[in-house]
Computed example of a mutant assay.
Amino acid sequence: MSGYRHPRSSALDCILSSFQMTNETVNIWTHFLPTWYFLWRFSVLCSSLDFLMDSYTWPLLVYMLLICLYPFTSSCAHTFSTMSAEARHICYFFDYGALSLYSLGTLRFSRPILSCLFGVTLHCELYWFVELQFPHKSKILRTAAFVVPFLFDSFPLFYRLLSCCWGSCSPSQALASHSYHLFFAFLTCFLFASHLPERLAPGRFDYIGHSHQLFHICAVVGTHFQMEAVLTDMASRKDWLTSHSSLPSFPATLGVLVLGVLLNLGIIGIFSAGLPRTPRQSTSAHLHQE
């Protein structure tokens, strides 16, 4: 209800606002600081693993690049979204594109590119058209745009966890981390959809403690546990994986990443090119309404 920045801020104003208390300040820092944490973890892995020559590590390389990318892109989107109505849309197009690439980066099975493209296309459509024309329905559809790719990517993990519950495998540290990751993923979705706690006390959580800030924190903590699970699985299951399947190839890992980036940029470019034709009055009115 308060704390909004001016909708025509300059780039410098946007940067300076990250050091002032607005309703976006914590959103910016809860993703900017974790970017450096994931970069630090990535640098440690670079010193211990041969990402250049060992193809077994290439899926991990893709994953680490993207868990560094998505919080940084989100932080930039929250920082610069008030430069103009068009800038706001473009910022979040890139934010959704990075999230879609993150779903690709999990590389849990052979069709992640479908999830990636579904996510970024649907998010851009919802943000560009549905949110402007049908603001009361857009929240449900935007939540579905997060949930559907997550479920699509996670079915193998659900199967693995259920198999262990039925006694087909023994508990491990990786499964514990996977369980924590799913728990925080659920919290992330719940907070995004519910608008709690600010729904219960309007105005009291404008600056600190509103649902989007908590959603950011849960998302990052969930990614941390996911990363720990991936690293544990990679080490403990290497012998089994290398004996039961071929080593990852460049086209199936880094090649898919490059393809995903190019297709995402193309989709973002198409929707961004259409922004000048968006009615200025409705766009500005919606921005003021938020």
Rank of each mutant, 00 (worst) to 15 (best):
G119E: 00
T283W: 04
H210Q: 12
F184C: 04
A87K: 11
A85M: 01
M227F: 10
F32M: 12
L117V: 14
L157A: 10
T79H: 12
T106D: 01
F225P: 03
L69F: 11
H78F: 06
R277G: 04
V44A: 07
S284L: 15
Q173C: 05
T79R: 09
S163Q: 06
P59I: 11
F192W: 11
G203T: 09
F129M: 13
C164A: 15
H288D: 09
A145Y: 05
S18A: 15
L247C: 02
L69I: 10
E228N: 13
G274A: 11
S284C: 14
K137E: 10
L126T: 07
G260A: 06
V221M: 03
C169I: 00
K137H: 13
Q133A: 12
P248L: 03
F93S: 05
A174Q: 08
A174L: 02
A144W: 11
V120R: 04
F192A: 11
F51S: 12
L39N: 08
S9Q: 12
F150P: 00
S211T: 03
R88S: 05
S177D: 12
P112G: 02
T82L: 05
H224M: 07
F72A: 15
H244D: 00
W166S: 05
T223L: 02
H212T: 08
G266F: 01
H244P: 00
L114F: 07
L104T: 01
V256C: 05
A176M: 11
T242C: 09
A11S: 12
S115R: 01
L265I: 02
S154M: 09
A235C: 08
C91Q: 06
A11I: 14
G269F: 00
R108N: 14
G203L: 13
T121L: 13
W36Q: 04
